[in-house]
Simulated scan of single mutants.
Amino acid sequence: MKIVAFVPIRLNSKRVIGKNIKLLGGIPLMCHILHTLTSIKVIDEIYVYCSQEEIIKYLPSGVRFLKRPKFLDEDATLGKDIYEEFVKTIDADIYVLAHTTSPFMKKETVENALDQIINSGYDSAFSCEKVQTFAWFKNRPLNYELKEIPRTQTIEPIYVETSAFFMFKRDVWKISKQRIGFNPYFALVDKIEGVDIDWPEDFEFAEKIIETYNIKNE
């Protein structure tokens, strides 16, 4: 069984300028998730999928560069266009799609999700947060009735995808063109693992987390 991880990267980030190579805790943001992936022994190959070769100098040992077509850098490009091009190029039994914007993802969380696919019959997995509170969608309560307000301890939880990773077997993508299959494993993450850096304030928050971690370990 061949397991391949890939991390799509653009260097022309609009919301946080130079986000992927901006230093977080003394190393480029993108290196956090790459270091996590390289520590997982069952992953056979790890690729950074980027159109710009200048990124090669930032890659940790064990990470390969795969040049992707420039047309995938357009603002209108959908994620599934990127995944399709990668899957057409690199063959694998299980794909691990990971993102640089989740620097605090734990090795154990990724390993456990992979194990569920390999050994427990799941066809895919994705990182998510469990939210057990009163939620609304399209102007209506999503998980409770207004006339029957439950305790928060017993309310039906909702699960929110995080962008850290999506894992899927080859046929899930090739047949259905989906990064989540029909029998997915919900890989629960905590608040820190769930941090997603999309905006400048997110990066500042991540820096505070790093500072706190360093203080606690001095």
Rank of each mutant, 00 (worst) to 15 (best):
W136C: 03
D93W: 05
F203P: 09
A76C: 00
Y144W: 02
R10W: 06
F134H: 12
A76V: 08
T100H: 13
I192L: 09
L142C: 07
T212Y: 01
I192P: 15
D171I: 12
A135W: 00
K41F: 08
H99G: 15
L146E: 15
S176N: 08
P28R: 01
I180L: 02
G25I: 01
L34E: 12
K22S: 14
R64Y: 11
D73V: 04
G26N: 03
A206I: 07
T109A: 06
E211V: 01
K130I: 10
N112I: 01
E201G: 07
N139P: 08
A5K: 00
F134G: 06
A206H: 04
E145P: 06
V195G: 09
K70A: 14
F86D: 02
I94S: 05
K107V: 05
S124D: 06
K177G: 09
V96Y: 00
A76E: 13
L29N: 03
I155P: 05
V131K: 11
V96S: 10
I209E: 08
I82F: 00
D93R: 03
N139S: 13
S163V: 14
S163T: 10
Y58V: 04
T152D: 15
D75R: 00
A98C: 13
I21S: 06
I46K: 10
S120H: 14
D75Y: 00
I33K: 09
V131S: 07
Q52H: 15
R179M: 11
I117L: 03
E85H: 05
T89V: 12
M167Q: 08
V87F: 05
P184K: 04
P200I: 07
S102H: 09
A125C: 06
P69A: 04
D196P: 07
T38C: 11
H35D: 15
S163L: 12
I158V: 11
M30K: 04
N20G: 08
V96Q: 03
C50Q: 05
S61K: 15
N217D: 14
I17Q: 12
K169Y: 03
D115A: 11
L23W: 03
Q52P: 07
T101C: 10
M167D: 09
K14F: 14
E156V: 06
E161H: 15
F186C: 01
V131F: 08
Y58N: 05
G62N: 05
F6M: 00
M1V: 11
H35P: 02
E193T: 10
L59G: 13
V42Q: 14
V87Q: 02
E111D: 08
E145M: 15
Y185V: 00
V96I: 14
E156H: 03
T36K: 03
G26L: 09
A76P: 03
K169S: 04
N143I: 04
S102A: 14
I155D: 02
M105D: 05
E207M: 10
R68K: 06
H32F: 07
V42M: 03
